[in-house]
Design a protein around this nucleic acid. Structure first.
Lengths: 131, 131
DNA sequence: CAGGATCCGGGGCGATACTG
DNA sequence: CAGTATCGCCCCGGATCCTG
């Protein structure tokens, strides 16, 4: 916690682009799904696991994850084609973080939803500034 | 890790909107800055800490964080106005996660940048399909 | 089955100007 | 100092159609 100095890097610092990899909902979902499933997953299997994702976004997300070395893509030259995706060791470290995020979200859904409605109610009933 | 079942929720599930709060780079940066700084921060102080952020995005980010109950906004009716932002206990839990993300990013920048250039090089030198 | 290509609308986000 | 308001671009991401 205080062992590692965590300063927000300057705009040009490449570590930004790395951190911002995880600032993406589909990345979080894909990593979480792979992490939780434990073993390699196929393309459509992954798609079925992630309600609401389009195959464009799935492809795009998997590509960037592969490019960044978080996911390994394995192709079996069979017919029909079989492609499997699995987390690399680097991806597992990230995957564990996404699982933590998911758990945090699940643990506090109610609290946050309550906070939202309370905030919105407050905003909707603020006394007019001055009439 | 395996204690909490982490399944990707359906599209309508509100827990999605909660998880996706953290799928935002400025949210990660703001939470990280507040978490690391340890004590309440003022608006422009926060802005100076986050290179590249515009006050629009800073305001917007702080609003959503306040709305979700992750950040408490404290106004001192002085002139000039003084407004401080601090993490709630809920925000601290999220803040710790963002610090973990930041540490993960910093720890693997080199590895990821290397993976990227390697991937791009490979993509640029793929043998022509068939001439 | 695992994708590539394309069209397209909405909104994220930056820049600028103004205010209490 | 701590914002609000507005304009405008870009690009994210959804929908659809096509291929090896």
């Amino acid at each position: 916690m205080d062992t590692a100095p965590w300063t927000v890097p300057s705009v040009e610092c490449p570590s930004r682009t790395v951190l911002e990899v995880l600032a993406n909902k589909w990345v979080l979902y894909v990593l979480g799904a792979l992490q939780q499933h434990g073993e390699p997953m196929r393309f459509n299997q992954l798609g079925r696991t992630l309600p609401g994702i389009t195959q464009k976004m799935l492809t795009q997300t998997l590509r960037t994850l592969e490019r960044d070395g978080l996911v390994a893509r394995r192709v079996y030259p069979t017919v029909p084609p079989r492609v499997e995706y699995e987390l690399t060791s680097l991806g597992h470290k990230a995957g564990r973080l996404t699982v933590l995020i998911g758990e945090w979200a699940l643990a506090h859904v109610d609290q946050i939803l309550t906070a939202r409605t309370a905030f919105d109610h407050r905003a909707a009933t603020t006394p007019a500034p001055l009439s």
